[in-house]
């Protein structure tokens, strides 16, 4: 020992792990592949009953067969039409109403009261009513999806408008901008990130309602296809429909993410 006693050096231990997980796209894709591979393995080894839980190969096989025959395209077209139609109506009205709630005292309290009362209703419970009003055809399904996507959009929009920096609005006023210019150039862009996250929630709710509505009263559409396959014990076809729904959800989330990146490039 060259050092005098009592003067030992000791490195300071690192204690700065702040739980900041990093994004690794490859790892995400690998997890999905591994899940499907494990499922296939379980089927091949015989752990899974082929009637109750068909293998991925059978599921994708029936999916390709459905695609080749054009049956899938028909169902998908019907579903997409309802989904985008209903979502477009609900989201547009929701953003408009949310802006009004966020901007005007006259709309604020009545609007929030009505939204709070109607938001918790499971919208699918209203489908029978909408069938009475709009008939068993497309109208009732569009109304259910529109109604379901309207409320989360309203809540997200007025929350986002509340969050817009009022010093920016004051700046707009001080430079003599008209109210319309302030809404268009300051409030809307400032609220956009919040509105877009509301639209994500609304789009997921729309898919749920789409399938539920199609199971209750439709001949065409992914939901109707899944229900019919279940009634006939065609579990491969049933799961094929579920896979399509998963892909549909992923595609919409991807689309919204892309729009978000385009519109908020300034961030």
């Amino acid at each position: 020992m060259t050092e005098p006693a009592g003067l030992t050096t000791k490195p300071v231990t690192f204690r700065g792990d702040l739980f900041l997980p990093r994004t690794r796209r490859v790892a995400g894709a690998a997890a999905l592949v591994a899940l499907v591979a494990f499922w296939q393995l379980a089927s091949s080894v015989g752990w899974l009953d082929p009637v109750m839980a068909p293998s991925p190969r059978e599921v994708f096989g029936s999916l390709f067969a459905l695609a080749r025959s054009g049956e899938l395209a028909g169902h998908l077209a019907a579903s997409l039409g309802r989904l985008f139609g209903g979502f477009a109506i609900g989201a547009t009205a929701g953003v408009g109403f949310g802006l009004a709630v966020g901007l005007f005292s006259a709309v604020r309290s009545p609007g929030v009261a009505v939204v709070s009362a109607l938001f918790p209703i499971p919208k699918i419970a209203l489908l029978p009513l909408f069938i009475l009003w709009f008939g068993i055809g497309e109208g009732s399904k569009l109304a259910t999806i529109a109604f379901g996507s309207f409320f989360p959009t309203v809540v997200a929009t007025y929350g986002a408008v509340d969050g817009v920096d009022r010093s920016l609005v004051r700046m707009g006023r001080s430079f003599g901008l008209s109210s319309w210019s302030i809404v268009r150039k300051i409030v809307l862009p400032g609220a956009l990130p919040g509105i877009l996250s509301g639209l994500r929630i609304a789009s997921s709710i729309s898919i749920v309602l789409l399938v539920a509505a199609e199971m209750i009263g439709a001949n065409r559409g992914i939901g109707a296809m899944v229900l019919a396959a279940g009634n006939l014990m065609q579990s491969d076809r049933l799961l094929g429909g579920v896979v399509v729904l998963s892909l549909l959800g992923l595609a919409i989330a991807g689309l919204l993410g892309w729009i978000e990146r385009k519109l908020t490039a300034w961030r």
């Binding site: 010093s167 001080s174 430079f175 003599g176 400032g190 300034w266």
Partner: peptide, 16 residues
């Protein structure tokens, strides 16, 4: 165009 004009402490620039 705007006879009385402000310069703000927090700049009040539109980030977008």
């Amino acid at each position: 165009l705007n006879p009385i004009t402000y310069v703000f402490q927090d700049f009040a620039l539109l980030p977008w």
